[in-house]
Design a protein around this nucleic acid. Sequence first.
DNA 1: CCTTGCTACCTTGTATTGCTAGGTATGCTA
DNA 2: TAGCATACCTAGCAATACAAGGTAGCAAGG
Lengths: 114, 114
Amino acid sequence: MGSDQIIDRWVPQFRKGLLEFIILLKLQQGAIYGYELAVEIKKLTSIEVAEGTLYPLLNRLKRDCLVTSQWQTAEVGTPRKYYQITPLGLETLAKMKTTWTQTHNSIFNMVMQS
Amino acid sequence: MGSDQIIDRWVPQFRKGLLEFIILLKLQQGAIYGYELAVEIKKLTSIEVAEGTLYPLLNRLKRDCLVTSQWQTAEVGTPRKYYQITPLGLETLAKMKTTWTQTHNSIFNMVMQS
DNA sequence: CCTTGCTACCTTGTATTGCTAGGTATGCTA
DNA sequence: TAGCATACCTAGCAATACAAGGTAGCAAGG
């Protein structure tokens, strides 16, 4: 097996957990609906989020009260469900930022030593 | 549920995949045995790797030919299984570094905007 | 001598979760 | 009116982190 196949299997694992972090970061900048979120994440991070990943994840965040959502209907177009970050979500996001920064620094040091 | 509990559940998810990366980074610096690897990872990154996580993961890396291993017995002490990184492992590690760097940059930009 | 604790390896079973593959529905455009 | 894009959702599969438990060697203290 070549390293490309190995990487293809590794990348989704690498993203696990990271996705929650990225979604909360994006939500911090304002309310957004699911489909647009996937497009934005792809644009910002080159990460393609499958819808089968995104919607269950958003529901998990909602279950844990990190986000809220409500339907928004317009005269034209299909209804959209907009998500907002909650105070608990902001608090959690702050801790994630700390964890992320610490882990990055550790790994960065290891990368530099090589 | 408080944000601390949420973080406690998030951190293991966040580490997924990252662990493989960290192990390969460490192996790049020289051969090492499992138990010492866990101690080193904790020292370097504050990540406590359970043995039930580490040994299956090392076997996965071996199955995929990213590392090799051999037993080393001494006159005293229990035998140790030393792991070395392979050329394929080094190749894979290089690609992981690229992915890591790109993802970090994207996230860093999002963190900065907030 | 024998219990405790540390080193050092391993396996089984459970819970979580990303993703594939499918479904529903609306509206625009050729 | 057919095709495509938008927009939401779910069921089931596969991968995997971890808790819990097991084996074994060795050192120190009672």
